[in-house]
């Protein structure tokens, strides 16, 4: 092949700019950020002596808040993924334009107004907000519900709303990849709707479901803005501690150790869940 050498040189040149951006503004800062987690702040100065003390601090002080964040994120990811799956399932298997409309709304609001969405829920869920107003108007309640806002529930509702379009996309993409014929064949062989769902549809869109769950789970674990605006003083995510280590206490090492500990814990929980999911799907088919 005469074009082999020149074409591979061109390929390298084409990828180089993006790779440079990735290296300089992601890989190197990430690596440095990791190193920082082993250093310390002494008299407002970064001291480059390797120590595990930050991680010891994290385990001693922040383990409960990491656990709380992961638990809340699991709940959010589970709700969002199931919700998204139900929507994507209807889009794929029901005729007509309603599905297309939902998909269009999900797509176009995907990157629209992260802060605006949180703010909107803050006004919606407040004691004088529209939800309380509506409930009182139709006479379901007499006093406004005070547990709607500034509770973990508010964080769950807000993040489910924000993350739903992110989850619909990968699930829909994988459901769209399922041909009609295997589904028809399963009906033809006598399978009930539930069996078709569990044994034919779900295993074929495993990638999409896992991607949706991972995306929503990871983003929820790291989100702190939502908790800060609608969670109230008692709903603090680990991200709130991380950013306050930076902003208020100017202690990057602790913040970094906290970040990497959370990342590791999240990864372990996620991998364990995925393993369990595979096992469950495999068990169904036996």
């Amino acid at each position: 092949m005469s074009r082999g050498a020149s074409s591979s040189r061109r390929t390298v040149a084409q990828i180089a700019p993006a790779a440079a951006v990735l290296t300089v503004f992601f890989l190197l800062p990430g690596a440095y950020f990791f190193l920082v987690s082993f250093w310390q702040i002494k008299r407002y100065k970064l001291v480059r002596e390797t120590t595990l003390e930050n991680y010891v601090d994290v385990v001693r002080e922040y383990l409960p808040s990491i656990g709380f964040s992961i638990t809340l994120a699991l709940i959010i990811a589970a709700i969002t993924t199931s919700f998204a799956f139900a929507i994507a399932y209807l889009i794929r298997f029901r005729e007509g334009r309603l599905g297309t409309l939902i998909l269009f709304v999900a797509l176009t609001t995907l990157f629209g107004g992260y802060l605006v969405k949180i703010y909107a829920w803050k006004t919606l869920l407040g004691s004088t907000g529209i939800i309380n107003q509506a409930l009182m108007l139709i006479g379901v309640i007499e006093q406004p519900l005070d547990w709607l806002l500034y509770t973990p529930l508010a964080v769950v509702i807000t993040l489910v709303h924000f993350l739903l379009p992110f989850a619909i996309l990968p699930v829909h993409a994988s459901l769209r990849g399922i041909a009609d014929a295997p589904v028809d064949a399963a009906r033809d062989l006598g399978a009930s709707r539930f069996r078709i769902f569990a044994e034919v549809v779900l295993p074929q869109c495993e990638t999409g479901v896992v991607t949706a769950f991972a995306l929503t789970f990871f983003i929820s674990v790291g989100d702190y803005v939502t908790a800060q605006l609608v969670g109230g003083p008692n709903t603090l995510m680990v991200g709130n501690f991380m950013q306050s280590q930076f902003i208020n206490r100017l202690n990057a090492p602790i913040g970094s150790a906290l970040a990497f500990s959370t990342l590791l814990a999240t990864l372990i929980v996620f991998l364990a869940l995925r393993y369990g999911f595979r096992l469950a799907l495999g068990g169904l088919r036996r």
């Binding site: 014929a181 295997p182 589904v183 009906r187 074929q204 088919r285």
Partner: peptide, 28 residues
């Protein structure tokens, strides 16, 4: 179709891509 004693072979076969040949044949 699930209640009829007929079975169909599709032009595109409609095999379950995530099941082995044995699992496909044993499904019904």
């Amino acid at each position: 179709p699930e209640q009829r004693n007929t079975n169909i072979v599709f032009q595109s076969y409609g095999l379950f891509p995530h099941m082995t040949v044995r699992q496909n044949v044993g499904f019904g």
